[in-house]
Write a protein that binds this DNA or RNA. Sequence first.
DNA 1: CGTTTGATTGACACCTTTCAAGAGACGTGG
DNA 2: CCACGTCTCTTGAAAGGTGTCAATCAAACG
Lengths: 254, 254
Amino acid sequence: MKTSVNAPLRGAQPHCQTCSLNALCLPLSLTESDMERLDDIIRRGRPIQKGQLLFQQGTEFQSVFAVRTGALKTYTLASNGEEQITGFHLASELIGLSGYNAGTYPLTAKALETTTVCEIPLQQLEQLADELPDLRRQLMTTMGTEIRHDQNMMLLLSKKNAEERVASFLLDISQRYQRRGFSATHFRLPMSRVDISNYLGLAVETISRVFTRFQKNELIETQGKEIILKDSDTLYDLAGLTRANDECLHQAES
Amino acid sequence: MKTSVNAPLRGAQPHCQTCSLNALCLPLSLTESDMERLDDIIRRGRPIQKGQLLFQQGTEFQSVFAVRTGALKTYTLASNGEEQITGFHLASELIGLSGYNAGTYPLTAKALETTTVCEIPLQQLEQLADELPDLRRQLMTTMGTEIRHDQNMMLLLSKKNAEERVASFLLDISQRYQRRGFSATHFRLPMSRVDISNYLGLAVETISRVFTRFQKNELIETQGKEIILKDSDTLYDLAGLTRANDECLHQAES
DNA sequence: CGTTTGATTGACACCTTTCAAGAGACGTGG
DNA sequence: CCACGTCTCTTGAAAGGTGTCAATCAAACG
């Protein structure tokens, strides 16, 4: 039944105004009253379990989603059935906007772990975007950030070798956790090695080998999905980044 | 002097309302009166010559641009100085939006040939986007299309081999010319082999070899930058595409 | 506790890059 | 109009990084 799907959850913050993520999420730049209006159109459903789809490539584009807790991956399917992961999405991140005006979702979103999301129906978002300039700007900022991320990935996939890719990946995840108030050096990867390899355009075995090489060189320490960055400076060098350099990729969130 | 730079050109259409590209370009979905308002804020400068920069990565983000005639490439610079071409841009296409709210341009735009553009100052575009819902939608549509393009490139760079990449590239260009009323099978590539190789994440030599292989198999015919597609069907197969399949990537333009 | 899934490691193959050289196109200036 | 230099494109041979295949190991799960 429809009502139970959208029923608020025990323990979860049911409103943007009181959500601990509102400084990172879509309401980022909204006034109190604007935030209320956004909050009014948001639907909060029951959690989706690991492996379940939030939306599927080719189905009607109806809503965008903000991740509240958990993590997802989004991927596109080639005609031969191969999938390419285009992004991993942590709490506060908005997904689905890439399907804007495409009619159908251009990619699939699958939960990497138990995940809760805030659903924002497109139709009402459209109307609100016309009435709230700050919201429009935030939506366009989110899309701009996404474009910069994807173009950064194009550079990675086109020009970087395996070690550079893995270093870039670990630092990206590290920074995103840090921005959310977690440790930048000690975290748990929500995705499998296979997912990482797919995302980085490498074979699983290559990911494994680079991880062990990094461990031997005392750059990182791994215990399954648990990661400790022991020498971030060298990782930055390897990634071909300066700390300052890639800050600009995340401006929408800061 | 500033005025001469923005002076209208001999022979060029100085207004969106009479521009032959307005059905493909930003004004696509605007009413007559809205188009006039957009037209009012657009600056039309003198042509930029081959090799000249339209804007440069790291400089202040001030305007977005619509290509009127000619072609450009946009590329990002890695910290080691390597460049990755992120896109080629033909007449009617909007460039620069990826810098939205980033403060500075995240990439550089360089003319591949003599090119004229319509400059749209950000500040006035922002205001207009708040007042004209259709314009806001068109801007977001453009960004959505860009995201889908980039994610398609991620798939190409991550999963496709050299032949598949070149086939995909040729068909993409072909479709874009066709949409502009030119032949889908007989066209001139505005970019060099080096640019193509950079864009596709391959060595120049590989591009050359694939081109000659395609010629031996009678899939294409090349004469320098002139290209004739002789067997589009096989190219589609090679690219791992069906004609229907990748239509959705261009919805913003159709 | 057996089964299944995910991660690691090694050996070998292959596609693409790199290096090197030559051919062709283009613009310039004599 | 042709000679010349420069740049682009093409072609060949060899090297190398990553993928593939196969086996082992570890962890998760019922």
